[in-house]
């Protein structure tokens, strides 16, 4: 049986000590801890439903072993809005109707957040590129493009005010 070890990491802004075996994926660990917003859709990197931010960069948590994120900051969609106000991406996904069954949504929002760091003013093709690892079977992505553009504008506005 794989060795189990306790590692320290930050999840959604909270410092946590987490016991996990060597062969646990971050997806398995997060769901075990109750972060059910991190979804499992394929467990082989094809769908993006499990995407989380690690130090601000989106990865598929099903492809990361838990021990490898020791000392890092992990953020799920539920951790984006920390500090009161709803995160502009979440707000925009709601308002644009970019959510149908919602199973892909947490991963899409996390991927969009990661993409906007590199591309704060994305056009549709930038969004396509940034979200091509997130499968959505319901929406056809049209309203997702709207949502990400709207959120990007809000985030740019917030940036320029700060």
């Amino acid at each position: 049986m794989a060795e189990t070890k306790t590692i320290a990491l930050t999840i959604n802004g909270r410092d946590r000590k987490v016991a996990a075996p060597a062969n646990a994926t971050l997806l398995e660990t997060l769901r075990e801890l109750g972060y059910f917003e991190v979804k499992s859709g394929c467990e082989k990197g094809d769908c993006g439903a499990c995407a989380v931010l690690v130090d601000g960069e989106a990865i598929d948590s099903c492809l990361a072993l838990t021990w490898t994120v020791a000392g890092r900051a992990v953020t799920t969609v539920a951790g984006l809005s920390l500090g009161g106000a709803k995160h502009p991406l979440i707000e925009a996904f709601e308002k644009s109707g970019a959510v149908q069954c919602g199973y892909c949504t947490p991963g899409l929002i996390v991927a969009a957040q990661s993409m906007l760091k590199d591309t704060p003013e994305p056009d549709d093709d930038d969004i396509r590129l940034g979200l091509s690892g997130n499968l959505c079977r319901c929406t056809g992505y049209t309203k997702v493009f709207d949502a990400v553009r709207d959120a990007a504008a809000v985030l740019r506005g917030a940036e320029s005010q700060a």
């Binding site: 059910f36 917003e37 499992s40 799920t76 969609v77 539920a78 979440i90 996904f93 709601e94 919602g102």
Partner: peptide, 18 residues
């Protein structure tokens, strides 16, 4: 805005597997 959407977008909705 559909009634089910905020919970889903914020990651609060519990699906059968949750």
């Amino acid at each position: 805005v559909r009634t089910d959407v905020p919970g889903k977008a914020q990651g609060r909705t519990r699906f059968a597997g949750d």
